[in-house]
Amino acid sequence: MRNAARVSAETLLILLLLYLFLELLGIAWSVLWPLVVALLLTTLTWPPVRLLRRRGWPPALAASVVTVLFLALVVGIVVLIAVPVSAQAGKLAQGVVDGIETVRDWASGPPLNISDDQVNSGLNSAVDKMQASVGSIANATLSGVSTVVNGLVTTILALFLMFFFLKDGSRFLPWLGRQLPGRLSTDLPEIAARSWNTLGSFVRAQAFVGLLDAIFIGLGLWIVGVPLVLPLAVLTFVTAFVPIVGAVFAGLVAVLIALVFNGWVKALIVLGIILLVQQLEGNVFQPMVQSRGLGLHAAVVLLAVTLGGNLAGIVGSLLAVPVAALVAVIWGYLREQLSDPPVEPDPAPGPAREEAAASE
Rank of each mutant, 00 (worst) to 15 (best):
Q286R: 13
I81K: 05
S143I: 03
L152W: 06
S317M: 14
L16I: 11
L235S: 03
R353N: 09
A325L: 09
G177D: 09
V327T: 14
A324T: 12
F165M: 11
Q286C: 02
F216T: 02
D213I: 02
P174C: 12
I14R: 11
V97G: 07
L212V: 10
V321R: 00
S317K: 03
L157D: 03
G272H: 04
Q279I: 02
L256W: 03
L80S: 13
A193Y: 07
V301M: 08
G313M: 06
R171K: 07
T11P: 00
I223K: 04
L40G: 05
T67E: 03
A89P: 03
L307P: 03
S136Y: 11
A348H: 07
L51N: 06
D346S: 11
A247K: 00
G76Q: 07
I244N: 10
L280S: 00
S115N: 13
L41N: 05
G246I: 00
P347S: 07
G26N: 15
L12D: 08
I217S: 00
P347M: 03
D105E: 13
E355R: 15
K91V: 05
G76M: 11
T43I: 05
G76T: 05
L235I: 04
D117Q: 11
V323R: 01
I191Q: 05
I27Y: 14
V242F: 09
Q278I: 03
V226A: 00
G350V: 08
G251S: 07
L180R: 10
D346T: 10
S195P: 06
T45G: 01
L173T: 04
E344M: 11
R194P: 05
E281W: 00
G26V: 11
A4T: 10
E360A: 15
F21D: 11
S195K: 01
V289A: 10
V301S: 04
P34R: 01
R104I: 05
R6T: 13
E355T: 12
V134S: 15
A207K: 02
L228W: 04
D116R: 11
P347Q: 09
L307F: 15
L268G: 07
N283V: 02
P345K: 04
P347E: 13
L142K: 10
W29T: 09
A193C: 02
L252H: 01
I100Y: 12
R183M: 11
A93C: 05
L51H: 09
L18N: 10
A63G: 07
D340S: 15
A312T: 02
R204K: 15
E190I: 04
V329Y: 04
S115D: 15
E281Q: 09
L25M: 14
L307N: 10
V145N: 06
V253S: 01
P58M: 08
P347K: 09
A158I: 08
R171Y: 05
G109E: 09
